[in-house]
Design a binder for these strands. Structure first.
Length: 556
RNA sequence: GCCCCCGUAGCUCAGUGGAUAGAGCAUUGGAUUCCUAAUCCAUGUGCGCAAGUUCGAUUCUUGCCGGGGGUACCA
């Protein structure tokens, strides 16, 4: 709709120029916006204001010239007004809106999608938690955001791959092995001194007990070096499987699980280091190898190989991000906790150093989640192993409520997650508010079907659309019409919460309409028209919820 | 010290280079013989402070104040 308005304005401007009403045919980029107030029409443009300097005319005069030259070639404009400092306001006829419904039915599951991504390949990497313990609430937010951003980009015409990077190499895995091995020794009656920097959680004991059952008599376990290795491999596998399962219960499915260790096995890490050394991007100082990230905009150079010969996490990260682009992705998106923000510059640096373009790399930094119960903070400590896991949360409040709350706010903002509130089946809980729309509509459609109102004519619903005259009905169609633009904006900004806001707005308008007007009435044609309208609402609610990974129930 | 995020209604948060800044919750009062009341309707003196850019700033820039997070040869 916006594009149509834009075309009308531009054609009007060209015509005005030819007629000599405008001095220039240089037309700057304009905004078409939906004014906040109905009195300002369905759409308005700032074209006259942004053109003032090139036309060297007062905005009001420009607006007059354009309005006088505009052709409403599709017959959708009821009237136009020039207002305020030079806005041109467009008031559309009701007829302009009805075709939206037909469009929705025609596209159905595809309504709202676009090809603006032009099939470009984009990878979204998220969660990527170390397999050293269960996922917690912060991972949940990252998972919901990453998954949803992937869905939205895919809907916006990108070819999306969702990936989980498994940190299955390095010190933390060894620490995991040591933790399990020590607990194992505890079980077999040995006296052990359990260090503070080992993983404290009960799940370590459980894994140790399992391992004891399975191969407690394996002599290799007696030897510390071999034992830790065996424990590490067993525990990491076990924990990773649990993570996979928890994510699956959370409705998150990855296309690829990428192993950090594989970057070492394939020599990718060392080859990259060698290559960078040859190009003087890596140098030696104090017995360590340093990457010249400062040359690429970082505050200081960073160590990739420590003086003890061990690589840092950053070393494999360089190789990993090179690998991503080598796999043919046009665009790479990482979802990180905001506490890792300091890493952005050095990854950008490594991508540029490797000959890539960091402008094709985006990081979504997700702020922290405060877990509350009834308004009171829930005490959590990873160190002591006392924390609420993602699984606990999904078990308690359900996948839909959890995801919807995670996606309710901008990732730039901290998020309060109240377990009691998320569980409540009341209006305080936004997920039910939106899902209820879908269930309500389904209920009406079932009733209409039972009463024989919907029959063969169903295919021709839209032919009664012009019966929709109530302001609430036009408003609903306007909201439905904006969905494709909402998806585009959400995809462009990588902001899934825009979909959330859209859903709340649509749900609110629907509930208001429902309470004011009966869908099934004595007037058969009006009934058909309204069934048509609510069916369209149902499609859009379902499509939008789907982008967030939240189900659209038929009944509640 | 430096870096990132935030500061909008009593609370939790949306939003925007433009014309009268919104929603939910909370408060108070109302609505159901009728398609699900998990709903609706009514009820509001708010953009942290200051300067700058602009025809126009809550939005962009800078400084300050306040809150959170980061700032390792950890991940």
């Amino acid at each position: 709709m916006k594009n149509t308005i834009k075309k009308i304005i531009l054609k009007g401007a060209e015509k005005a120029f030819k007629k000599g009403l405008l001095k220039s045919d240089n037309f700057p980029e304009m905004e078409i916006e939906e004014p906040k107030h109905d009195a300002h029409g369905d759409f308005s443009t700032n074209f006259a204001m942004v053109s003032a300097s090139v036309q060297k005319m007062a905005p009001g005069k420009i607006a007059e010239a354009i309005v006088a030259s505009m052709d409403d070639f599709q017959g959708i404009i009821d009237k136009t007004e020039i207002a305020g400092p030079g806005f041109i306001n467009f008031f559309l006829t009701d007829d302009a809106w009805y075709p939206v419904l037909e469009d929705i039915f025609k596209k159905d599951f595809q309504y709202g999608s676009s090809d603006s991504g032009k099939g470009r390949k984009v990878q979204v990497e998220f969660v990527s938690a170390n397999p050293t313990g269960p996922l917690h609430i912060g991972h949940g937010r990252g998972a919901a955001i990453g998954d949803s951003v992937g869905n939205i980009l895919s809907f916006a015409g990108y070819e999306v791959e969702k990936e989980y990077y498994i940190n299955d190499s390095g010190r933390q895995i060894r620490t995991l092995g040591l933790s399990v091995w020590l607990r194992l020794n505890e079980i077999t009656g040995k006296k052990v001194d359990f260090p503070d920097d080992c993983y404290q959680g009960d799940y370590i004991r459980e894994i140790a007990a399992e391992l004891n059952e399975l191969k407690g008599d394996d002599p290799a376990l007696q030897n510390k070096d071999d034992g830790v290795l065996i424990c590490a491999r067993y525990a990491a596998d076990k924990i990773l499987n649990n993570i996979k399962q928890d994510l699956s219960c959370f409705g998150v499915k990855f296309d690829k699980w990428f192993s950090e260790q594989s970057l070492y096995d394939s020599k990718k890490v060392w080859n990259t280091i060698e290559d960078f050394k040859n190009r003087d991007l890596i140098y030696e100082k104090d017995g360590a190898l340093w990457f010249r990230t400062e040359k690429f905009g970082d505050e200081k150079d960073r160590v990739v190989v420590r003086n003890n010969g061990l690589t840092t996490y950053f070393a494999s990260d360089i190789a990993y991000h090179m690998e991503k682009f080598e796999r043919g992705f046009d665009r790479v998106i990482d979802v990180w906790g905001a506490d890792h923000h300091g890493y952005v510059k050095r990854i950008n640096a490594s991508i540029d150093a490797a000959g890539g373009k960091s402008e094709n790399f985006d990081v979504i930094l997700v702020q922290l989640v405060n877990l509350l119960r009834g308004g009171e903070p829930v005490a959590m400590s990873t160190r002591s192993g006392q924390f609420v896991t993602l699984k606990d949360i999904v078990d308690e409040v359900g996948k839909d409520a959890a995801r919807f709350i995670f996606l309710s706010r901008s990732s730039d903002s901290g998020l309060d997650f109240d377990l009691e509130l998320a569980k409540q089946q009341t209006s305080e809980n936004p997920v039910y508010y939106v899902q209820y729309v879908h269930a309500r509509i389904t209920g009406i459609l079932i009733k209409a079907d039972r009463e024989g109102i919907i029959n063969d004519a169903a295919l021709n619903w839209t032919c009664y659309a012009s019966k929709l005259k109530e302001p609430e009905e036009i408003k609903l169609i306007r909201i439905l019409a904006s969905f494709p633009e909402v998806v585009e904006k959400s995809a462009r900004d990588l902001h899934p919460h825009i979909i959330f806001t859209f859903l709340m707005n649509l749900a609110s308008s629907f509930h208001g309409y429902y309470n004011r007007h009966k869908v099934i009435t004595e007037d058969r044609e009006l009934t058909m028209a309204r069934l048509c309208l609510i069916s369209a609402v149902k499609i859009v609610i379902r499509n939008a919820l789907c982008l967030l990974g939240v189900s659209a129930p038929e009944r509640m």
